[in-house]
Every structure is written in structure tokens, then in C-alpha cells.
Design a protein around this nucleic acid. Structure first.
Length: 273
DNA sequence: CTAGAGGCCTGCCCGC
DNA sequence: TGCGGGCAGGCCTCTA
């Protein structure tokens, strides 16, 4: 399940194979993704264009060409691989971008929660328009989070997973960050101090940085673009550790549902007020 | 405006 | 061994 660190890892992995290549062909085998893939628009915008830049915004991968860009979201189960043109097709290989080098950027997504979009300018993409700041952006600090929280009463875990507030914090890293900051996932967000938000933001940044440095978290679905797994799963403190002793106090890790999502926490280290 | 629920979709795991 | 039910989960849409 690719979150921000996984997307960052994939971006770094594929970028050298894409930069300065010309897009020769766009193949859509199944257009039924999160939104219907617009094959003709993709072909019109992308074919015979050179790739000038590969970047990331939230969990969207942006592949820039002079006339616009290709936008890829991996959803829950999407993977991107760089392959040579003779590689045989597997089930769920929905999309190919054929490069002048002869390599193919191939998108595979069993659950089809991902997206393939294209646009002339970033302003034309509704999915990008409402996104909050990146967690590493200068614009964001504990004060920013604290201010937005005053108007709300939701659980802090829901708040930090809301992409309008801050992007890139998915379920795994929300759990890990809250544990690291010693905040209960259900703590009402308007009752947290600015100091607590400072700790929380720092925890989010530390957890994401550590995950990027280990190449992401491999649970069931995630492999890097070269097919190697990520190693961050070995560093998880609470996620998928139900009943196992807390690394800080030995209390068994507990689970609950917060916003219909699996939530892991230490009942002793992360207390409600 | 916000919060909460529903839906998309397939692979995997578990129990019978 | 095979089959069905439940679950996972990002993110959008709908309802209250």
C-alpha cells in the first residue's frame, strides 16, 4: 500500500529511466481505474513529447512534458516498473508508456483504486487543487495545524489523514506518528495544544523520513520499481503489532477502529485526556 | 461548513 | 481440497 514514502521511493527509482526520453506510445489495456482513463487525451498530450521532469505532489506522481503532464496515482495496490519491451504481460497490467529507449513504464493495479490522468497545466487537475501542504513544506508548522484544529472536533488521527490539512499521511504512518508523539488516536483535535502539534508534526516528519530512507514499507503489496521490497516494516512500532509488547513500556499494543480504519496504539503511552 | 458512512475492487486468509 | 465470507484501504461522493 503505497504511501508518501513509497511514492517518493518509486519516483526516485523511475526518474533516471524517464528523464530526456521521448514518449513513443501510450497503451491502455483497461481504462477502468479510479476514474475512466482518457486514452485519446493521453495520446494527444504525451506522444512524441520529451520527459523533462519527474516530481511528486502528495501521492501523485507527475511526469512532465512540454505540453503538460502525465499524472499517476497508485491507489492501494498499484505498481510501476521499468521493463524492456519484450517483457510478457501479467494480469492487471493496465497501462504502458513506451519510451524512445525501448523501455516501457508499466502500470499494474489489481484493485484498480489508482488513477492515470493527464493535463495541460496543474490548475486543470481537480484532484490536485484541494490538496493541503506537503509535510516537509516551509508553510507548515505546529501553529498551522493548531489553528486549523480549532474549528474541528474530530479525532486527531482523522485530522492528520485529511489531505486538505496535510498530504501524505496514510494509515500506517498516522499510527506510527501518533505513537511517536505519545498522542491517543482519538484525542479531540481542538483539545491539543500548539506544543503537542509541534511534537506531532516533528514525529510525522521523522517517521516519513525514516521510511523514505529504508525504501518504504513492504507489507503485502509494495515493491520498489526495481522489484526490491522496502524495509521500513522492520521499524514499525505499533502498526500490525496487535497484542505484542510496546517497545517503550511492554504493554500489549491494542487495536480499534477510528474512521473505519485499523488503528494501533499503546494504551499506556498514548492516553486520552 | 463538518463528520460519518458508503462504495469502489481484488487478493488473501480463515473457517467449514 | 474447495468455497465463501470478511477484511484491507486511499480517496471520492453522498447524507445528515
Amino acid at each position: 500500500m503505497p504511501e508518501l514514502p513509497e511514492v517518493e521511493t518509486i519516483c526516485k527509482g523511475i526518474s533516471p529511466y524517464l528523464l530526456n526520453q521521448t514518449i513513443k506510445q501510450i497503451i491502455v489495456r483497461d481504462c477502468r481505474l479510479r476514474w475512466p482513463v482518457e486514452t485519446k487525451a493521453l495520446q494527444k498530450t504525451l506522444i512524441n513529447q520529451p520527459i523533462t521532469k519527474v516530481s511528486r505532489r502528495a501521492k501523485y506522481i507527475l511526469i512532465h512534458v512540454p505540453t503538460g503532464f502525465l499524472i499517476i496515482h497508485l491507489g492501494m495496490s498499484g505498481t510501476l516498473r521499468i521493463l524492456c519491451d519484450k517483457t510478457s504481460l501479467r494480469k492487471h497490467d493496465h497501462f504502458d508508456c513506451v519510451l524512445s529507449s525501448g523501455n516501457i513504464l508499466r502500470y499494474n493495479d489489481p484493485r484498480r483504486f489508482g488513477a492515470i490522468l493527464c493535463a495541460q497545466t496543474a490548475n486543470n487537475v481537480p484532484q490536485l487543487a484541494t490538496l493541503g501542504p506537503e509535510p516537509f513544506n516551509d508553510r507548515i508548522d505546529g501553529k498551522y495545524l493548531h489553528q486549523l484544529a480549532q474549528k474541528r472536533r474530530c479525532a486527531v488521527k482523522i485530522f492528520i489523514m485529511n489531505a486538505r490539512i496535510v498530504v501524505g499521511v496514510g494509515n500506517i504512518y498516522a499510527n506510527e506518528s501518533l505513537f511517536s508523539a505519545r498522542i491517543h488516536p482519538q484525542h479531540p483535535v481542538n483539545e491539543l495544544s500548539a506544543t503537542k502539534f509541534n511534537h506531532l508534526l516533528l514525529a510525522i516528519q521523522e517517521v516519513l523520513t525514516a521510511a523514505i530512507n529504508s525504501g518504504g514499507t513492504t507489507l503485502k503489496d509494495f515493491y520498489q520499481s526495481d522489484g526490491k521490497p522496502g524495509y521500513f516494516s522492520q521499524e514499525l512500532k505499533v502498526y500490525h503489532r496487535k497484542g505484542l509488547p510496546c517497545f517503550t513500556c511492554q504493554t500489549p499494543i491494542q487495536t480499534m477502529q477510528v474512521g473505519q480504519r485499523a488503528t494501533y496504539y499503546c494504551p499506556k503511552c498514548q492516553k486520552l485526556p
